[in-house]
Simulated assay, not measured.
Amino acid sequence: MMGLENHTYSSHFILLGLFSSSQTSLLFFSFILIIFIMTVAENTAVILLIHKDPRLHTPMYFLPSHLSFMDILHISNIVPKIIANFLLGSRTISFAGCGFQIFLSITLLGGECLLLAAMSYDHFVAICHPLRYPILMNDYVSTLMPTGSGLVGTLYSIVPTAYTLHLPFCGSRAIDHFFYEVPAMLKLSCVDTTHYEQGAYVSGIIFLFIPFSLIFASYVQVLLTVLQMKSSDAQKKLFSTFFHMDVVVMYYGPFIFTYMRPKSYHTPGQDKFLAIFYTILTPTPNPII
């Protein structure tokens, strides 16, 4: 019992955020606000356009509409809290609010990893096997892919969320991050989290390395197929594929680097910088691409 005297099961946490109230921070805050508005507007426009035009009711556009929906939820789960903290000067959040943000964030991150893999498969079939596309990407498959991505992401998020919220926290409850992320929470814990980190490493292989490897393999096949074509349409497909890979690397790279390292190697500045890519920046170019 004496070993638990300094353990804190708190009803709230303090989020230090991205910036203070200086002029430089105001400029950065304005940039984040503009990115947020652009992301929500662009992704909403994509969803409405695909829903309105019957010609776009195909798997090739059905999957991007779900990606846009996930991007809206993801950035809306994080940026409004950043805005509120900056404008109101209040950086506290309830224990329940912290848990909800962690759960939704992991759900969307995991679901989007699987959805990007599904989109790469759709891209691969459309270019490499166009005659078999209606069979391989029928209505059942195109519905199962986003539904399964969301469901698996939800189930995946239960364990890390429950584990993180049941940790005893020592001393300060201030989290040096701009949202409640599991690696940042682990650094505040009093107990040894080695076993959890090992489990997180295994789940990272399943949810990050395997989907990324499948995406990379599918785009290699796409590039090889397109390079054999001589038409101008093939050049456009090649150009589009490069942009797709840029977004995938910008999303998966920082995500893998953050979630598959031991907590002793994490630094607040580095974690915040990497998290900006897969939480704020990546959802912005997706609709344009």
Rank of each mutant, 00 (worst) to 15 (best):
Y196K: 05
P64W: 02
D122Y: 14
L73C: 12
Y201P: 05
M60E: 15
G204S: 04
I256L: 09
S90F: 15
A45T: 14
I289H: 11
L115K: 04
L109K: 01
S65M: 09
L73K: 04
I82G: 03
I280G: 06
H74V: 06
I289W: 08
K230S: 11
Y219R: 09
K187F: 04
F242A: 11
D53I: 01
S22N: 10
G3T: 14
H166Y: 07
M70T: 03
T284F: 15
D233S: 15
E181D: 15
V79N: 02
G110W: 00
S218M: 13
I50H: 11
F28Y: 11
A162I: 11
Y265C: 12
F31V: 14
I47T: 05
H7D: 09
S76M: 05
S10Q: 13
H266W: 13
F31D: 01
F69P: 00
S213D: 02
I35Y: 06
A41N: 07
I127C: 07
P287G: 05
L115G: 00
L16Q: 14
P183C: 06
F28A: 09
I37V: 15
F257A: 15
S68N: 06
L63K: 08
V249P: 00
F103D: 06
A234C: 00
F19C: 09
I205C: 12
L224Q: 12
L167K: 01
I289D: 05
H123E: 08
S76F: 02
A45W: 13
G111R: 01
F207G: 03
M145S: 09
S264V: 12
P80N: 00
D71H: 07
T284D: 14
M119G: 01
L131E: 12
L87T: 10
F257T: 13
T193Q: 08
T284K: 08
A126P: 04
T161F: 01
Q270A: 13
K272R: 09
I276Q: 08
T58A: 05
I82M: 13
H51T: 07
L48G: 02
L18D: 11
T39N: 05
D71S: 12
F28V: 10
F212K: 02
S231L: 01
P285Q: 08
C128R: 04
Y278N: 07
S240R: 13
L224I: 09
Q101W: 03
F19M: 12
Y196G: 04
S105F: 11
C113S: 12
F207Q: 04
F178D: 03
F179K: 06
I35F: 08
H12R: 15
M1D: 15
P168M: 01
Y133T: 09
Q101D: 01
I75S: 00
T107S: 12
L26V: 08
F216R: 02
G199W: 07
S10M: 07
H266R: 05
Q221P: 05
P80I: 02
D71A: 12
G199R: 07
Y196L: 03
D122S: 14
V220E: 07
L144G: 03
L238T: 02
Y251E: 01
Q23P: 07
P268Q: 03
